[in-house]
Design a protein around this nucleic acid. Structure first.
Lengths: 120, 120
DNA sequence: ATAGATACTTACTTTTTGGTTAGTACTTGT
DNA sequence: ACAAGTACTAACCAAAAAGTAAGTATCTAT
């Protein structure tokens, strides 16, 4: 016979939630499938909405806009609208977004090295 | 009246999938809510399963083990079992995992800086 | 005999994320 | 009058990720 299990639930563990570690803080803003990728493509400079769509062909319009909005809300990207028709909207990194560049750059470096390993 | 929409679906865009960018490659292995955090806590050195659980109180056992397994399958972490009872299992970074440290370190740096901004 | 320690495993449910498909606004050029 | 171009928006549904709660194995110490 075995003793009754104490529980390994998230709820029971939530006590530690407030004392978040810095990595968790960052992950909360740039985690997910798309955000780091979007930010990466903005490092080189501002991009129009349509340009981002082309740079990240796998993303759907819904996701691209949703993620851009969230990044904007977190003040990582800046959105600029030229009042013309058809619309002309440009996205760029804010200072806070720019300071994330090392993260994406490190990812790119690692990816370059190990993608090559797996192929070759 | 409007023209019929072409489609902005993922399927239609999948042509670009093979020519993956290096960031996507990296994200495929360390993306998600937990992996970067786990790797971060292994930078300082090998950790037992139970130690990781304490270092990351918000994670459930199921997730911790599942993520560790995936990281192991991607040869980012190494799992070592001492054949004793009770079990004694140690996780550590592989060379490939170690080379990801700059990513997590950059995240930690940014997190430290901007978490402070939000509070202060 | 049984409780304790450690590292898992499994079945099930909920939550979150993402995809599909369609539509809108507005102005210029034909 | 209408098609084209650009940047969205919204309703609905499916899939993936994560959470919950419980159980298992094995040896040591009591």
């Amino acid at each position: 016979m075995y003793a009754v299990k104490e529980s390994s639930t998230n709820h029971a563990n939530k006590q530690g939630e407030l004392s978040k570690c810095p990595v968790t803080f960052t992950l909360d803003r740039i985690g997910g499938r798309w955000k780091a990728l979007i930010l990466y493509h903005l490092i080189a400079g501002p991009q129009r909405y349509g340009a981002l769509k082309k740079l990240i062909p796998a993303i759907t319009e819904k996701m691209l806009i949703q993620q851009l909005k969230e990044l904007e809300a977190d003040t990582l990207v800046h959105r600029e609208v030229k009042p013309v028709v058809p619309p002309h909207v440009t996205y760029s990194l804010t200072p806070a977004g720019t300071e994330l560049a090392p993260v994406m750059q490190a990812m790119a470096n690692w990816g370059l090295k190990y993608a090559a390993v797996e192929v070759g």
